[in-house]
Design a protein around this nucleic acid. Structure first.
Length: 411
RNA sequence: GCCGAGGUGGGGUAGCCUGGUAAUCCUAUGGCCCUGUGGAGGCCACGACGCGGGUUCGAAUCUCGCCCUCGGCCCCA
C-alpha cells in the first residue's frame, strides 16, 4: 500500500502490529520459556538492537549483507540491525564476561531483523528466544542444552521432532574435498538435495549414511562417535526423545560437532522452530576461543504452532453516578491494588456504562451512587449472573478473590 | 529476485465477466431515545473502490506499471 491522499501510512513490509489479544498469548508463552530457562540456571542478557556490521560479516560472510538492514550512522560507522542473537551474545561475552566463572549460562529474548521476502512464518522483524552455554566442550553441555530445548518447547505444549546429528561424521566423509566443495556438500545435505549431492565425490556415501536404517552404526564405519554416543546416552537419561539425523548440516563453519533442530509438524514450509549446536565464535571477535553450545527458538513460529489457554484475571468496572465520582475514584484506586479495575472516562450514563461493561467483557460492575457513598457500601454486580448486593470495599475484595479461586482451582 | 492467488469503510461482503445516476448489505465504533442498572430494539453519525498512468463522453469494472497481503521457490546465520 502506498501512502496517498486517502490511504493511511502503512506499516513497513514484513512487520506486524500486535494487538492486545495476540500480545497476551505472546507474553504468556514468553513467560513459560523464561521460567524454564531460569529454573535451569540460565540468566537473561540483552544486547543492542544494532551492532557493528562487521560482527555479522565476520560470523557469516560478506554475502549476508544483502539480507541485512545495514546502514551508516551520522558518524560514518557501518552498522546493522541484528539478524540473530548468537553473534551479539558472543560479542557480549568477549567484551564483558570472559573472566566470569564457567560455565556461563545465558538466555535472551529479543527482536531480530532480516531483509528477506516475507512469507508464512517469516517476517522482517521477528523474535528469537535462545540460550547459550559457554565454557564446556563436554557431551554433558550438549545434552543439557538439547534437553533444555525440549523442555522449553514442552512447557508450551508444543510437540516437536527433535533431530540430533553431528558434523564430525560429515566432515570426515568430505575431508578429502576442498573447502568449497565441502561447503557446497553441507548446503546440499542441509537442504536434502540428494540428486545434486550424489554428483559430488563421496556424495553417495553421505546419502547412504543419512538415509540408513541405523545411521549410528553406519557412521561408525567412518569415525569414532564417542562424543555423540555419550550425548545420546545422557539424553536418554534426561528422558529426551530424539531422532539421530546426520542430515543436519547447518551450513556454517563455526559449528564444531553436535547440531540439532526441532520441527513442528503442524506448520507449513517454514516448520523449523528451533536450531542449535556446539560452536566456537568468540575468537572471531577478538576473544579467547571458548567452547559453547546454544540454540535459538523462532518465537513467531512457535506462536503459530501453539494454542495456549491464557488465564484471564477478573476485570472490574467501577460505575459512578455523577455525584459520587470522587468517592468512586477512591474506591477504584483501592481495588486496583488487587484487581484489574477500570472506571469511566467517557462521561457516560449508568446505563451506557453497563452496556459498555457488558460488551467489553467485564466480570463485575461496582456501582456507586449517592446511596453507596453515604453507607460506604458500593453495589457489587456480577455481570455474568446479574446478582448484585452492597458490600464494603474489603468485602468486595474477598468476594471477587473467592470467585477467582472457584473458577481457577489449579494454580 | 522468481512463480501463483488476491487487495471495495475498523472487520466481513455485493457490484467487476457484460463500463453508465447517490457503491450494496451485515457488523463494529460514537451519540441519542434512556443523567441509578447491561446484553434487545429504533434513530442519527462515522467510514471504502491499494497507488499512479492509459483507453473512453464516462472506469471499482477494461488495460499497463508499481505497492502491499497470502501460499510456494531461492535463501535461511
Amino acid at each position: 500500500m502506498t501512502a496517498g491522499k486517502n490511504t493511511p501510512l502503512a506499516r513497513p513490509r514484513g512487520t506486524r502490529d500486535l494487538l492486545p489479544a495476540e500480545m497476551k498469548r505472546r507474553r504468556f508463552v514468553e513467560s513459560r520459556l523464561r521460567d524454564v530457562a531460569e529454573r535451569w540456571g540460565y540468566q537473561e542478557v540483552a544486547t543492542p538492537a544494532f551492532e557493528p556490521l562487521e560482527l555479522f560479516t565476520l560470523k557469516s560472510g560478506e554475502a549476508i549483507v544483502d539480507e541485512l538492514y545495514s546502514f551508516t550512522d551520522k558518524g560514518g560507522r557501518p552498522l546493522a540491525l541484528r539478524p540473530e542473537l548468537t553473534a551479539p551474545v558472543a560479542r557480549l561475552y568477549v567484551n564483558e564476561l570472559q573472566s566470569a566463572p564457567k560455565p556461563l549460562k545465558l538466555y535472551y529474548f529479543g527482536d531480530c531483523f532480516r531483509y528477506e521476502r516475507p512469507q508464512s512464518g517469516r517476517y522482517r522483524q521477528f523474535w528469537q528466544f535462545g540460550i547459550e552455554l559457554i565454557g564446556s566442550a563436554l557431551p554433558e553441555a550438549d545434552a543439557e542444552v538439547i534437553a533444555l530445548a525440549q523442555r522449553m518447547l514442552r512447557s508450551v505444549a508444543l510437540d516437536v521432532d527433535m533431530h540430533v546429528g553431528s558434523l564430525d561424521v560429515l566432515r570426515v566423509m568430505f575431508c578429502d574435498l576442498d573447502d568449497e566443495t565441502c561447503a557446497l556438500a553441507m548446503r546440499l545435505i542441509d537442504k536434502g538435495d540428494f540428486d545434486r549431492l550424489g554428483e559430488l565425490p563421496g556424495g553417495d556415501r553421505a546419502i547412504d549414511l543419512i538415509t540408513a536404517e541405523d545411521p549410528l552404526s553406519e557412521a561408525q564405519n567412518f569415525v569414532a562417535l564417542d562424543h555423540l554416543l555419550r550425548v545420546l546416552e545422557l539424553l536418554d537419561t534426561l528422558a529426551v526423545s530424539y531422532t539421530v539425523d546426520f542430515g543436519i548440516a547447518r551450513g556454517l563453519e563455526y559449528y564444531t560437532g553436535t547440531v540439532f533442530e526441532a520441527y513442528a509438524g503442524t506448520l507449513g514450509a517454514q516448520n523449523q522452530v528451533l536450531g542449535g549446536g556446539s560452536y566456537r565464535l568468540s575468537h572471531l571477535f577478538g576473544g579467547q576461543e571458548v567452547p559453547s553450545t546454544g540454540f535459538g527458538i523462532g518465537f513467531d513460529r512457535i506462536m503459530d504452532a501453539v494454542n495456549p489457554s491464557v488465564p484471564e484475571p477478573p476485570r472490574l468496572l467501577v460505575v459512578p453516578t455523577g455525584d459520587a465520582r470522587i468517592y468512586a475514584l477512591q474506591v477504584a484506586n483501592e481495588l486496583r491494588s488487587r484487581f484489574v479495575t477500570d472506571i469511566d472516562v467517557m462521561g457516560r450514563s449508568v446505563r451506557a456504562q453497563l452496556t459498555y461493561a457488558n460488551s467489553a467483557g467485564f466480570d463485575y460492575a461496582i456501582i456507586i451512587g449517592k446511596k453507596e457513598m453515604e453507607t460506604s457500601k458500593p453495589t457489587l454486580r456480577n455481570l455474568k449472573t446479574g446478582e448484585q448486593e452492597s458490600f464494603s470495599v474489603q468485602q468486595i475484595i474477598d468476594r471477587v478473590l473467592s470467585s477467582v479461586e472457584v473458577s481457577q482451582p489449579s494454580r
